[in-house]
Simulated assay, not measured.
Amino acid sequence: MSTSSNALRDVTSVDDFLNVAATETVPLFEPLSFEFLLEYDVFAPASRGRTRVHQPPDLFRGFLHCYHEDVYGTRPVTRELQHGLVWYYCRLDKPPSRDTVDRFLTDPEHVIDDVFDRLVKQAADGGLFDSTYSVGSAHVEAIQHNNAASWNYDPTAEEYYYGFGCTIVSTGVKIPIAAEFTQTKQADQETAMRVTRDALAVDTPIWMLGDSAYDILEWHDYLLAAGIVPIAPYNPRNTDDPKDTKYRVEDRIKEHSEDVQLKQSVLEETYNNRTGVERTNDAVNDCGLGRERSRGRVHARTEVFLALCLRIVVAITNYERGNKPGCEKL
């Protein structure tokens, strides 16, 4: 850790120090420990070469600060972390170089999912989940110079965009609990099943809500077998002989169980809660989702998961401070 004299070299008065120390991102680092990042082999010191100057937990704090302050991209992040005491209260020993910032977006490629999962578990342990899960997709815009991205159509916004997609399962107070980075906004069946399994690995809800894109027999049967009620609008375009039903689950229950009955009014009332995933997407957008400024798929994916992680950290921090965990900022 730097000495006080080094840390305060850019501060000209006590007022300046207090203003910086009172910055709203400081509480982000209080309720959670990010030291578990040191457990990953990808961050282990190299047997040869330069010693790692900046520790992964400190760089992670630096990115959380920047994303909370709407600072994205390797150059802007590097500039932000050059400011007096910003790097200090992120617990960095000194301002990182752009190469260091760039490398930190590359190193976690294979572990960022696990980092996200650990934070999700802490949210679950804190009681921030409820009995309803919702799944939906968000578009992730990218810079034109990112050759790994492509043009996609967003049916919700009814417009084309250049970038990627992200499928998110959410619950409770805008908490993302499972996610999958995709090439396009619309998830395929394999992605839908994978993100559903990931969500159920955390906890078991009563309801699982999806739009008509989740009118998938495998998805419904998998959830029903797990004791969960899936609700997705029936899509008559999936068959040449459409059924007279509004939700696919009505047909699945009728086909497989004579004892279970669900009123359509109950299904409709419950399905109205699916707007929760849209609110979660908006909250994660506030944390940087869809503002990728990096080149390549690896950096874009890491930035998406950093935004997801920040959303969970903000919710946990607000909860621990006695504030509403659904608030999108501290």
Rank of each mutant, 00 (worst) to 15 (best):
N323G: 10
Y214V: 01
L217I: 15
L224Q: 12
S265F: 07
E80C: 14
R98A: 10
S97Y: 00
S294L: 14
N285L: 10
G84W: 10
F164A: 05
N285H: 10
Y247W: 05
K185T: 13
Y271F: 08
P31E: 06
T51I: 11
K324Y: 06
A213C: 03
E141D: 06
T280V: 10
P45W: 05
E39L: 03
R194K: 12
R252W: 07
Y271T: 14
A142G: 08
S134E: 13
L18T: 12
R50D: 01
H139F: 12
P236Q: 09
R279G: 11
P95H: 00
H54N: 07
N323P: 05
D130A: 02
T302R: 00
L200Y: 04
L37D: 05
T3E: 05
S4I: 02
A232K: 08
V140T: 07
R61H: 06
E190P: 09
V304E: 15
L308K: 02
P31I: 00
L38Y: 00
D282N: 13
G172E: 02
V314I: 15
T317W: 10
V314K: 03
V53L: 04
L262M: 14
G127L: 06
V14M: 13
A199W: 09
Y153V: 03
E109F: 12
D102L: 07
L8A: 07
T132D: 02
P57K: 04
N272A: 15
P76N: 03
F181W: 00
C327W: 12
A22T: 11
V284I: 13
R194M: 10
V140N: 10
A213K: 05
R321H: 13
Q183H: 01
R274V: 01
P205A: 06
D114M: 11
E109M: 09
L59C: 01
V101A: 03
N152G: 02
H65L: 14
G73N: 03
G84H: 12
Y161S: 02
L330R: 14
D203P: 01
R301A: 14
E158W: 11
G322M: 10
N318H: 07
Y160R: 14
K94M: 04
W219F: 12
Y222F: 06
Y214A: 03
R118I: 13
T239L: 12
A283D: 15
V77E: 04
M193L: 15
D286L: 14
A44D: 03
A123P: 03
V140W: 07
R194P: 01
F305G: 10
V71K: 13
R291L: 05
N146H: 04
D244A: 14
P176S: 03
G172R: 09
R252V: 05
T74F: 05
D15L: 15
S2Y: 10
Q144D: 13
L128M: 14
I216G: 05
I216P: 03
T275L: 10
T100E: 11
F104K: 11
L224N: 09
V101N: 14
A315C: 09
K254C: 02
